[in-house]
C-alpha cells in the first residue's frame, strides 16, 4: 500500500539503472546478469544469505569493485543517465563524495576513528570546498542532532562511542552533503535488537524527510520490511525474485524466498 502510493507519484526517469551486471572471481560467480531500475525517492532492498552475491553487487554498484560486464547508469543531472563505470577516476570519486553515500556494516570502515565526531561529519563538506570553520561546525552540530548524538560529544572521537552511536555518526557523515543515492551494507548488522530498532526508526525518518534513494543490502527481513519499497532476492549470484516488499514477503513465489521468509518466521 505504501509502496503503491509511492509508485503512483514516481517520475518516469530512473535515478539508477543497472543492466546485465556480472562479476566473477576466477571461476566462481559473484553476481550474474543483474538488472534493475531505481527511481528517485525509492528504497530497494537486496536480501539473500551470505554468499548470495548481494555484497558483491552493492560494491559493484558503488564503484568499489569493477564488474566484468554490465552497466551502472546514474542520472548525473544535465547529462542525464551516464555509465558510472565509464567515468574517469576523479569523476567517480567526486560522485562518491557528493551525490553518493556508502554506509558500511562496520562503522570502523566508514569513520575516521582518530578524528573527532565533528571532523568526521565535516570531512565531506571540506572535501567539496567548505572553508568556513563556523559553518562546518554548525552543520556538524545540526547533523549530530538529527542522528540523536548530544551536541557536547562533537569533539569526542568515535572510539569513545557505543556501536549504535558510531553507526549513527557514520550516517550523519554520509548524509551531510545531501547525497541523492545511499548504498547501505547491513547497516544494522552487529547491533543489539533495541539499538537496531532505534536506528531503523531514524533511517526511515531520514529517508522520508530527505527523499533519499537507497539500495540496502541485508539478510535481515525486518530491516527491508520497514525501509524498502521494493525487494530483490538473490541466490548464488542471481536474482531469483523481485517485487514490492510487502508482496514478496507476504506471498513469496520462488522456493528460495519461501524458505527465507519461513526461516525468519520460525525464529
Amino acid at each position: 500500500m505504501r509502496a503503491d502510493a509511492f509508485r503512483a507519484e514516481a517520475p518516469v526517469a530512473p535515478l539508477l539503472s543497472v543492466r546485465g551486471l556480472t562479476k566473477r572471481y576466477g571461476g566462481r560467480v559473484g553476481c550474474e546478469d543483474v538488472g534493475f531500475d531505481l527511481y528517485p525517492g525509492e528504497v530497494m532492498g537486496i536480501v539473500g544469505e551470505s554468499g548470495s552475491g548481494k555484497s558483491t553487487l552493492l560494491n559493484c554498484l558503488a564503484g568499489h569493485l569493477r564488474p566484468d560486464a554490465g552497466e551502472v547508469l546514474f542520472d548525473l543531472g544535465e547529462e542525464g543517465l551516464c555509465d558510472t563505470l565509464a567515468l574517469s577516476e576523479p569523476e567517480r570519486r567526486r560522485l562518491a563524495r557528493t551525490d553518493w553515500a556508502f554506509v558500511h556494516q562496520n562503522p570502523r570502515d566508514g569513520l575516521r576513528m582518530t578524528v573527532s565526531a565533528g571532523g568526521n561529519v565535516g570531512e565531506r563538506l571540506m572535501a567539496v570546498g567548505a572553508r568556513n570553520y563556523g559553518a562546518i561546525r554548525a552543520s556538524a552540530l545540526d547533523w549530530l542532532g538529527r542522528v540523536e548524538i548530544a551536541a557536547d560529544r562533537i569533539d569526542d572521537r568515535p572510539a569513545a562511542f557505543s556501536g549504535g552511536m558510531q553507526q549513527r555518526l557514520q550516517i550523519a557523515r554520509n548524509l551531510v552533503t545531501g547525497p541523492r543515492l545511499v548504498f547501505m551494507d547491513e547497516p544494522t548488522g552487529g547491533l543489539d535488537v533495541s539499538v537496531q530498532a532505534r536506528l531503523l526508526d531514524l533511517l526511515r525518518g531520514l529517508v522520508r524527510d530527505m527523499g533519499l534513494s537507497a539500495v540496502i543490502v541485508t539478510h535481515d527481513l525486518a530491516v527491508v520490511r520497514l525501509l524498502a519499497h521494493r525487494l530483490m532476492v538473490m541466490k548464488g549470484g542471481r536474482v531469483v525474485e523481485t517485487g514490492l516488499t510487502d508482496q514478496v514477503l507476504d506471498d513469496p513465489q520462488h522456493g528460495y524466498t519461501q524458505l527465507l521468509v519461513s526461516s525468519v518466521l520460525q525464529v
Binding site: 570519486r93 565531506r124 572535501a127
Partner: peptide
Amino acid sequence: EYGLMHVKLYE
C-alpha cells in the same frame, strides 16, 4: 583530494 588536510586543521 585534499579534504583530509582541512580535517586536520579543523581538529
